[in-house]
Design a protein around this nucleic acid. Sequence first.
DNA 1: GTGAAAGCGCTAACAC
DNA 2: GTGTTAGCGCTTTCAC
Lengths: 342, 342
Amino acid sequence: MKDVAALARVSPKTVSNVVTGSAQVSEPTRQRVEDAMRQLDFVPNLSARTLRNGRTGIIGVALPDLATAFSATLAHEVVDVAHLRGLAVQIEETAAEPEREYELVSRARTHLIDGLILNPVRLEDSVIEQVDHLPPVVLIGEVEQHLTDRVFVESRTAAREITTHVIERGARRVAALGGAVHGLGGKATSGLRLQGYLEALHAAGLDPDPQLQVQLPEWTIAGAAAGMEELLDRRVHFDAVVAFTDTIAFGALHVLRRSGVRVPEDVLLTGFDDVEHAAFTNPPLTTIAFDHRDYAVAALDLLAARLDDRRRETTAQTVDHCLIVRESTGHPGAVPRGHRPD
Amino acid sequence: MKDVAALARVSPKTVSNVVTGSAQVSEPTRQRVEDAMRQLDFVPNLSARTLRNGRTGIIGVALPDLATAFSATLAHEVVDVAHLRGLAVQIEETAAEPEREYELVSRARTHLIDGLILNPVRLEDSVIEQVDHLPPVVLIGEVEQHLTDRVFVESRTAAREITTHVIERGARRVAALGGAVHGLGGKATSGLRLQGYLEALHAAGLDPDPQLQVQLPEWTIAGAAAGMEELLDRRVHFDAVVAFTDTIAFGALHVLRRSGVRVPEDVLLTGFDDVEHAAFTNPPLTTIAFDHRDYAVAALDLLAARLDDRRRETTAQTVDHCLIVRESTGHPGAVPRGHRPD
DNA sequence: GTGAAAGCGCTAACAC
DNA sequence: GTGTTAGCGCTTTCAC
């Protein structure tokens, strides 16, 4: 930069002004500076700028597992929206190591990021509470605490709606696939979806049956397939499967069909998230949809606001959802025959 | 850091030595320093370190579209492997704007990254050649140039193998779904897969039919579904579909089944990449598999080597692939009936 | 094994 | 509108 300044016969500050556009520069001077920059193939050093302003222009996005459709979709949207705002995105994955979530929150400053969008799986409230000087964090999902900003869809309500839908379509023995396995109680997403499912059963006067609830250690297709096989092995009667994510539904659908169970004739099936593939399975999947881009925009808005003012009140923002009915839950009046062992 | 030094009554350099472990520090001194760090809740400032060493510890990964299964899988593996090596990953997406690939290569220095792993879609050789001082780049895919390191699977060979497989299973009218639409000729991945497909037809004495080749503007499920519908609209006879990625096959499978075409009884179907979902479609998808983690490891190895020595010879590394036969291509001897209009 | 001094490249604050 | 000064927090000499 000094070289550029020397060549253009101005001060380094003027070069800086030209580069950042932060101050007025007269046209002839700007020309000289720009020529000099081109001549010397000058590229501003972001590390130095970062050291000076304390901002990197990078935000972290921590997701459980990029290979899972919903995480990938969310990452895609966040990267896209962030790019439009001149921010870069650093991706972190948390599924492999539970302690990684804590590490990210407590030591965000060591990573070269200004703030963090975190989709927690196992993070407990207490962890957030323990952290003294919280970095700017936006939580994705309904962790019930008020120390950070949050964005979420109303999982409990949505789960109730979709469960009610299959009941209205004639299901009486509704299985739930995807309950939490980590003892997070009612706090995490999976717990809320389970609550919504139970509420719907209750409202319809149906008794919940623990035999119809399958917990999954992993929310992947393979994990869901294993869970579905476990349900079949239990040899219980069921006529609908409410999966807690689309990815789980994909695994369930595969196992059901391979086992000769027809969807939706025998068993109704639903997902959650409305990832692209959900509309393209056979049959297409009834699911809970919400605007993934809105999700990304809301998260980035909150984070940007927090970066500008660390002291403002934390807020929670919901993203609207709606039920998308596709063929996996059949037609009105077409009651599923149900799957009975033997 | 100065504060820590003062509190521990040592010099900043000694604190630095303790933090980085770059020099021997006597045990009592180290203790004092570590106590002081804890007491002051000291976190080293990576920006400053970066400014000093010229390395950020962040690598960029540029992929066409994270929402596509293969990109997501690759990103997942790269993030995981990079994390094990103490590197962070910054994600860039290139599909939306073609010029973004060029921008990334030519201006990598402006982003806070040490190097770039780039999966090019539209990048032409000439772009690479124009760039004067190439940042450390590892290209994913068979771009035929020698200015950067490269990692790839042998697309042409693999496409020939899988096309030959469907021919051996009795197909005679093999459609290809996914040809390039951007006039990249034989250079890009899609061109090579098309070549392999044509070679297999030729070797089997089958005439290529342009009517059986469908180009896709986008390699997404929805794009593939549209392409498959176009093929059906052409009202040509075909008895197999070779899709150039699994994601394309997913879209094709959906349209085929919805149109009453059975897979594999009427039409055989194949994919490419062996993403997780490929084993869980109905029927499961015959595809070309390769170790996604090997891919990530190879790319990171090459990038790390390049970062250590900018002047070494560029190298190309292939990742082994193999044909995974699943039910979407039926059984030996079970000749597909074919799809005939009307 | 430890300390002192210099400087990485940039920009905020202030002078002119 | 432009120049000067100082310093962000660390690490690399080189001396001790």
